[in-house]
Simulated assay, not measured.
Amino acid sequence: MTATAIVIPARYASTRYPAKPLALLRGAGGEAKSLIRRSWEAAMAVPGVDHVVVATDDDRIREAAEAFGARVVMTPETCANGTERCAAALAGLPDAVDIVVNLQGDAPLTPAAMVTGLIERLRGGEGAGVATPALRCAPELYRRLVADQKAGRVGGTTVVLNRAGEALYFSKRVIPYVPEDRMDEPGLPVFLHVGVYGYTRAALTAYPTLALSPLETLEGLEQLRFLDAGLPVAVVEAEAADLWELNNPADVPVIEAMLAARGIA
């Protein structure tokens, strides 16, 4: 027997937004729920998933999550990123779990179909032990990313793929380079990465044992550790969707407006 699990990594000590998992977000109808609860509810709405757990190192998050019925796995404070926290959470999951999805605790608007697509890709047995989604950039989005880069802002992470649909590289710079006279072409191979990950148990178990990648430390992108070690990362092209992460207090009204527009209570 095999099983799937969604792990929601959550930490209290965020540099940009301390106590972020406990921030309240009002949905349609005005009910306020914490970010961690909304992330858990999004995970619970994914069909065919056997286990959903919150992985944290903080008792305040544990108490809040258990109060609304979530299962919590305590993980070390030393976890450097969400993938390490998911790997630490494996000890609290049944041995039958062979696929784990890392659903970021600050992205409650992640569509269920996006998670399902990662699970299906890993179940397909095409060789990759890691899968992650990306959105193909329309010309206007590409121009916005380039404008952000020129202004010194990080507008998102982009990824370039090989013919097998596996990642060649992820970067906070806009890649690949597109000449000015080709920016309006439809179907350009420019993909905006979405920070959701699916792992086989073997790949996730191996992650903490891999050497820290210099590229990972420069870019601040945890998935580069897999590529640096020669482990393939499959990229699943997802349908366009309005996604917004809660990174600072200014994001709260934006996400609340999206919750209301989608009728999410």
Rank of each mutant, 00 (worst) to 15 (best):
E180R: 15
R153N: 11
E180D: 15
V160W: 02
G129N: 11
R143M: 04
L145M: 02
G156W: 01
R143V: 02
S171E: 01
R163A: 15
A131N: 11
C137K: 05
R144P: 02
A167E: 06
E180M: 14
S171L: 10
I175F: 02
E140K: 03
T132R: 15
V159E: 00
N162D: 14
P179H: 12
V160R: 00
P139S: 13
G155S: 01
E140S: 11
G156S: 03
Y169A: 12
A164L: 14
Y177S: 14
D148C: 03
V154P: 07
Y169R: 07
V178W: 05
A131M: 11
G165P: 07
G165M: 07
V174D: 06
Y142G: 06
G156Y: 01
Y169P: 04
V154Y: 04
G156I: 00
A134H: 07
V159S: 00
Y142D: 12
G165V: 05
C137Y: 15
T158E: 03
G129F: 08
G165S: 03
L161M: 06
C137E: 13
G165W: 09
L141G: 09
V174E: 09
G152D: 06
P179R: 15
T132W: 10
L145D: 10
L141P: 09
P179I: 14
P133Q: 07
L135F: 15
E166V: 12
N162G: 05
A131E: 12
Y169V: 15
A167T: 13
R144H: 14
E180A: 14
R144K: 09
T132N: 15
V154S: 05
P176I: 13
T158N: 01
V146D: 12
R143G: 08
L168G: 02
N162Y: 04
I175H: 00
R143Y: 06
R163N: 10
S171F: 08
S171Q: 03
D181E: 15
T132P: 13
V154F: 03
L141D: 15
T158G: 00
R163L: 08
G152W: 00
V146S: 05
L168W: 11
A151R: 12
R144D: 15
K150P: 00
F170Y: 03
A147S: 08
D148R: 05
A131W: 07
L161I: 09
A164E: 14
A164I: 06
D148F: 07
D148I: 10
Y177V: 13
V154E: 05
V159T: 05
A131C: 09
K172F: 06
V160T: 13
V178P: 04
P176F: 06
E180W: 11
R143H: 08
G155D: 03
P139M: 07
I175T: 01
S171K: 04
K150Y: 08
D181N: 10
C137G: 08
R144L: 03
V174Q: 07
A151Y: 01
A138I: 05
A131P: 04
A164S: 10
R153P: 06
N162K: 05
P176K: 10
R144S: 12
P139Y: 09
P133C: 08
L141S: 11
A164F: 12
A151W: 00
G155A: 00
F170K: 01
V159A: 01
G155K: 00
Y177I: 11
R136V: 09
N162W: 01
T157Q: 02
D181T: 12
A147N: 06
D148L: 02
